[in-house]
Design a protein around this nucleic acid. Sequence first.
DNA 1: AGGATGATTGCAAACGTTTGCATCAAACTC
DNA 2: GAGTTTGATGCAAACGTTTGCAATCATCCT
Lengths: 323, 323
Amino acid sequence: MVVTLKDVARASGVHTSTVSRAFSASHLVNPETRIRVLAVANELGYRPNRAARALSTRRTGNLGVIVADIANPFFPPLIKAAQDQARARDHHVFIADTDERIDVEEEAVRSMVGQVDGLILVSPRLSDRRIRELADEVPLVVVNRRLRRLPCVLMDVGEGIRLVVGRLADLGHREIATVLGPPASWTGRAAVRAAEETAREHGVRTYRVGPHQPTEEGGAAAFDAVLDLGVTAVLAHNDLMALGLLRAARERGVAVPERLSVVGTDDTLTARHTRPALTTVAMPVEAAGRAAVDLLLRGADPEVVTLGTRPVERDSTGPAPRG
Amino acid sequence: MVVTLKDVARASGVHTSTVSRAFSASHLVNPETRIRVLAVANELGYRPNRAARALSTRRTGNLGVIVADIANPFFPPLIKAAQDQARARDHHVFIADTDERIDVEEEAVRSMVGQVDGLILVSPRLSDRRIRELADEVPLVVVNRRLRRLPCVLMDVGEGIRLVVGRLADLGHREIATVLGPPASWTGRAAVRAAEETAREHGVRTYRVGPHQPTEEGGAAAFDAVLDLGVTAVLAHNDLMALGLLRAARERGVAVPERLSVVGTDDTLTARHTRPALTTVAMPVEAAGRAAVDLLLRGADPEVVTLGTRPVERDSTGPAPRG
DNA sequence: AGGATGATTGCAAACGTTTGCATCAAACTC
DNA sequence: GAGTTTGATGCAAACGTTTGCAATCATCCT
């Protein structure tokens, strides 16, 4: 039924080890033999059994990427970039979606350990301790979370956020709210920290709302609280939440940006198509995906790659309304 | 370093086979022994080696899902639904993105054969023949493509399209364009067929534009041709392309829906947030994901599951402009 | 010429599980 | 109480590769 090395060996009159070498160590076998063996293998329709190979070599040729939510438009470009890079390095990528749930994340990780040569955890929700434990079992790199002595790829949201907040201050805003996403989000905390710091420097007051789910619904749910604060501008944890805020604003008849300026984070494709188009902070997602794969496959010493971010000003922000 | 069955066996004074059975055939081992063994295994931090298990049993506990483009918002909900269903059936899901490229699809399929117990091909671009060949190597189910004697999950776009076209006819439209996506798209062809059929019944003329890439850019690229035809309504292959049409219309100063009605397909999340909000045909993506997993794991006779679709009328469609 | 070198191949032992079969004791059957 | 079933475990052969080692043979060097 299924063709194995042994079949190919028998059919071409050599030992299985020679066939094996013809495939994976071609310099160790006579060119003529190699060609003959490959021809026979091809004719028989031989396909190497990856499980067996993995058992023997302890390498699978697969990488795992674990993300919180593929439906969140932030992740797909990162995944695709990682995939391209991995393909270029002769590896394949398995993706798992954790549904923003820590138990599912744990399970996904567990299922991948042992069938991949390395793991990329994107914005993981697991505890630092758990991640370090995992790092002992399998090579891994963490994206958007800082862990000492582990390879990390970080997007410096602070950079973009500082510029955005400065810009809002220039536009006359004196009170800004930040809408929080998952408490375990490293970037989220970094963004809030940068926002509050910059605001203080500019004599702008800040308030926090949330945490809420990092979804459109989560953003909508935060709207009333934002309104009650009486702020003139709001920074959302991501574009999805900003979308929810925009929708809620429209439903409540609050004009954006005339009465309230709304800023997202991520610059996902949809940001351009909201009504009004969303001002947001663009993240270097493709670069992050590629960097993560490189870090993983290079297998070098723990290293931190930091990538910059920049604000994209569109129509959801404007001058503060006159008091 | 890494703990194997043998280690657990030695530490708990039984044979490896007993340890193995304690895990995967617990009714064959004395309850007391089992508990002791499991305790020891747990303490030692034993994790079964999946490659070894796969080699021995020829089953991996993994399913593969292959999609054209995870960045296309049509796919993630399907993937997530499949993932949930698989998890409920004690399986894991590996995802691969083919980037809409047939060679990458071939490669992705190849890499998965042998490391999954079954494959779900969503809107595959491979030839019928190739898919049938694959079906001999690995159990598979095809989503949104009809192949005799293979298990398929189909979304009956025709149903929704017929209703939409009827509605456009009622609104006074007499000339409609369809913008084509990838020629290999089964749903695309079904949709166009349904549209043209229904149009004919209503005495409405139809034109075809394309094919173009099923992306926002593709949609924008089609706009001029649509405009030249002088039609009053256009059906896009998917929401992304409709988005592109909307953007191009705005840039060219063509009012939607006053001068041109635009209809998408898929009802992705973004459809709600375009300006104007997009009229589209909602697809039963979650149901399809679940059905595909069920078909695969049930392993029953080839079976075809057909799921209905329905139009969602929003603001991008309206009465035809008076001639 | 005689030994050293290098290229090519075969041999066989891993890799970590699962599983059919054999074994053995204890518990039944009549 | 001899024979039979039942339950629990061990034994060893798979599963399909890879790879260190040894064997063979031709070639090269001096």
